[in-house]
Design a protein around this nucleic acid. Structure first.
Length: 498
RNA sequence: GGCGUCGUGGCCAAGUGGCUAAGGCAGCGGAUUGCAAAUCCGCCAUCGUGGGUUCGACUCCCACCGACGCCUCCA
């Protein structure tokens, strides 16, 4: 199967060819663990997951690695992110958002990182993010790789790509790496002309070039710090990905690197400079694939706009007023093309809930009909072939979903075969459990006791032909989030997924 | 200013140099129902504007108009 991806490095669609036959080495930039991950983060992460699952459907063995950034080296406004997180955690403990006892000492950055790492894994697993199920093997934490970062910085200095400036800070010298700017288009001359005013002069005077970026900063006062040949301090942001990608994937050049589009510059540009500067290779990743941003009801998502949602906000019903099943959020986040800005809306969520429900219902129907028996099927089957061919065209999810919808409405008299096809499609969509995988499952919606009581009452009312009472109960059930079906003799109710 | 993506029905969104321009949602008509819901059947676009290339373009080229993203911590 011919697979195409849009490569940000060359700004065009390219046929995908893995370095090693049948194996794909893939790295995705992961979350910072100072706060709960929001739906924009997950849009980008799940795009990586879709890509990985598709490659697996296409027959590749995919080694996917995603880092956890737990080094407190970023700033939020003026404050260190870890310090900001400490403040936030203290507030959240008061409000109950962070349960009592979850973080014993909010001043300990490791405890904060641990707490939010667990929260991330919890959300990610619910959303069927495969790499999260492989934690910790495939999800290294930056603080466990400080030694590797120091090694890489030393090597960069040896090779003439980095230098220690007069204030003791280690910088990468972008002038030592002619390809700097190839990914983002921000070549050195453009950066220089555009730099005026934006960067503080005192910082700049220490650097050889305005675009030189930090590799190690000695700083005794920093909240998280480690010993190094350049003094006690902390590593730059970019170096962790270069190190963990190489260590975990075991080679200097990898196949695919993904992330949000905002990471193209400076983060990914700098990763390339570091990794290639260190290895001497012409490429770090052969394919750089970036996801566009997520908007909420047409607006950019931001805390000040009040339209900023974490994954758990959505699960808990902060967006729609009703709880949303994780499978619905997953489907909503993967159903639009990764290179389009996706618009996250309530209506979209409802649509997604309908589709997910339809798929789950079809599955139960097929299981009942086939007695759980499943046929053998592969991509040579016309339906799956069409489904996979769409995805092979730069992850054309809309095309693939069209195939799926048409198939849903088609003839399913061979239930065992249909079940097999269903499973294959679901191995990519992951909106319901697949054998051997517990993640991201829509487990159907069983009624609770109260709902069941109302249902029985309704049946009784109907036997007595008391339609007014029956209708009243139906309205109540619907208000309680149930889907009510009145059959000839039976009444069935089911919790809606959103 | 630099780099990049894009403009298809009410909304979301595929696709092709030439048979009937996917699919979803919404809507409309019908079947079904005590009434609904769900389901099933049917209906519902000529592709931003103006040129050009071509036997023929929505699809190729040019111009224009418009939308959006990145260039600063951000997925």
């Amino acid at each position: 199967m011919k697979i195409n991806f849009y490569n940000s490095l060359t700004n065009q669609q390219e046929e995908f060819k893995s370095i090693q036959d049948g194996v794909v080495k893939m790295y995705s930039c992961g979350p910072t663990v100072y706060d709960f991950a929001h739906i924009g983060n997950f849009r980008s992460f799940l795009f990586g997951d879709l890509m990985r699952r598709f490659l697996e459907l296409a027959g590749y063995e995919v080694q996917h690695v995603m880092n956890i950034t737990d080094v407190g080296h970023m700033v939020e406004g003026e404050a260190d992110k870890m310090l900001a997180a400490a403040t936030r955690v203290k507030e959240n403990k008061k409000s109950g958002r962070v349960p009592e006892g979850a973080i014993k000492d909010p001043n300990d950055p490791y405890q904060i990182a641990d707490y939010y790492t667990k929260a991330f894994l919890d959300d990610a697993n619910k959303l069927g993010y495969k790499v999260a199920a492989e934690y910790p093997d495939s999800m290294p934490r930056a603080t466990d790789y400080i030694d590797g970062m120091i090694e890489m910085i030393e090597r960069l200095i040896q090779r003439g790509h980095a230098y220690v400036s007069s204030d003791g800070v280690v910088y990468y010298s972008v002038e030592s790496f002619p390809d700097y700017g190839n990914l983002s288009g921000n070549t050195m001359d453009k950066l220089q002309s555009g730099a005026g005013g934006r960067v503080s002069d005192q910082n700049q005077s220490m650097k050889k070039h305005p675009a030189d970026f930090l590799l190690w900063k000695p700083d005794q006062k920093h909240i998280m710090k480690w010993d190094s040949p350049w003094g006690v301090g902390y590593p730059g942001w970019h170096i962790e990905c270069s190190v963990m990608a190489a260590k975990k994937l075991g080679q200097d050049v990898i196949d695919i690197h993904t992330g949000g589009e905002d990471l193209i510059f400076p983060h990914h540009e700098c990763e390339i400079a570091q990794s290639c500067g260190c290895s001497g290779e012409s490429h770090f990743a052969n394919y750089w694939v970036h996801a566009r941003f997520l908007f909420v009801e047409g607006e950019k998502m931001s805390k000040s706009q009040g339209n900023f949602y974490t994954a758990r906000d959505v699960f808990e019903g902060k967006v729609t007023g009703k709880p949303v099943h994780p499978a619905v959020l997953r489907f909503e986040l993967i159903k639009s093309h990764y290179r389009s800005n996706m618009n996250f809306t309530k209506k979209g969520l409802t649509d997604s809930a309908n589709t997910v429900t339809k798929l789950i219902d079809l599955r139960s129907e097929l299981e009942a009909k086939s007695g759980g028996k499943m046929a053998e099927v592969d991509l040579s089957h016309p339906v799956l072939n069409e489904f996979a061919t769409a995805l092979a065209d730069d992850l054309n999810i809309a095309g693939a979903l069209a195939v799926m919808h048409t198939w849903i409405k088609s003839d399913h008299s061979d239930a065992a075969m249909s079940l097999a096809i269903w499973d294959k499609m679901n191995s990519v969509l992951a909106i319901a459990p697949i054998s051997g995988e517990g993640a991201g499952a829509a487990d159907g919606g069983d009624a609770d006791d109260q709902g069941e009581a109302m249902r029985l009452e309704m049946v009784a009312a109907r036997e007595a032909k008391d339609y007014a009472k029956s209708d009243e109960l139906r309205d109540k059930l619907i208000a309680a989030g149930y889907d009510v079906q009145i059959g000839k003799t039976e009444v069935t109710i089911k919790k809606k997924l959103a």
